[in-house]
Design a protein around this nucleic acid. Sequence first.
DNA 1: AGCCGATGTCAACACGCGTTGGCCTACAGT
DNA 2: ACTGTAGGCCAACGCGTGTTGACATCGGCT
Lengths: 199, 199
Amino acid sequence: MDVTEPATRARRSDATRAAILRAARERFATDGYDRATIRAIAADARIDPSMVMRYYGSKEGLFAAAAEFDLRLPDLAEVPPDRLGETLTRHFVRRWEADGTLVALLRAAATNPGAAERMRGVFADQLAAAVARSVADPATAARRAGLVASQILGLALTRYVVRLPPVVDLDPEELTTWVGPTIQRYLTQPLPPSRASGG
Amino acid sequence: MDVTEPATRARRSDATRAAILRAARERFATDGYDRATIRAIAADARIDPSMVMRYYGSKEGLFAAAAEFDLRLPDLAEVPPDRLGETLTRHFVRRWEADGTLVALLRAAATNPGAAERMRGVFADQLAAAVARSVADPATAARRAGLVASQILGLALTRYVVRLPPVVDLDPEELTTWVGPTIQRYLTQPLPPSRASGG
DNA sequence: AGCCGATGTCAACACGCGTTGGCCTACAGT
DNA sequence: ACTGTAGGCCAACGCGTGTTGACATCGGCT
């Protein structure tokens, strides 16, 4: 170790590491965790499978690195309250049209418990946290975030994974027009009268 | 072949076939297509793996048989128009709480193209068909059915596959109260003003 | 009783997988 | 120019998989 240099000193292998990660994201997104093989990823990145092991330790480790995902949610406290749904929906559609990582995570989460755990983490740490900043009653934030997740992930599922034709055919703006009000309602609708007093 | 008897004459092996199918549904639902192995299914059914091949030809064939799924949708033409969302949502939650087949199909569809194709078939043949009977303008039926699917499947995904805690914690009636109005809106909301005239 | 197809068991095959360790190569520090 | 080390390739291992075919056994027929 060279303690006189910053820890993040550029390594000669950075290009390789990046190529592996890029190929891994693509394969995981297309094939899911099980069908995405290290051999195929290595071939895409034009390196030897053993390099993947050297740099990421194991397939699990590679997935963990590849599924690092930042939703890049805006600060919802600064969004006009009556445009929350529209803003969030448009943001999500844009975000995952540009970056297949979330789709990779979604596909993998269907069969891989670790991926499901990470998916829960993403939504707890990022979506629920953002929602909490825009909701009047903090006690309802988690529930509202869960409902938002159900619609947003359902959209991703039907559009990018199952590819239901009518959902694939909608363009991002139509999607926002239809789904935005749903998200808006989940965020702002007063709690329905319930048999139990609290949640 | 005994042509004097009905074609569906009871076979001695029917119990075995059924045991295989039951075990397969369970495994496919829990593990997804790839991780559900024929050996594990056979072990659950307490028979030899080769019997699976004998009766279902291949793993694909077994899955095709196990993923046969009837949504058992009610005739929406007989449901009061203002209760469509509530009725549909409650029906779906009940249906898949009672039968894991749809969850199996969902898990498998994330990685298996054949399963995704079947999922599209289920929703085209059953959901879209049912929706068409309850919608004023038939030209919008497919789109509305797609939106309904996005929310319904998203609910199944977050509740049974990813298991997001806030979605898992909601009981079926709370779910219906929250999600029902979304489905209602997708079914009955007039088309939003769009740049294009139709489609 | 004696046959014969249906039912079930067993062992094995070929394959692709994640993973490992040994070896060659090229470059940075002296 | 020499050397140590990081970067990279190759061949192989052990394993679990879907699938196959040969063999045993059961049970309804004549």
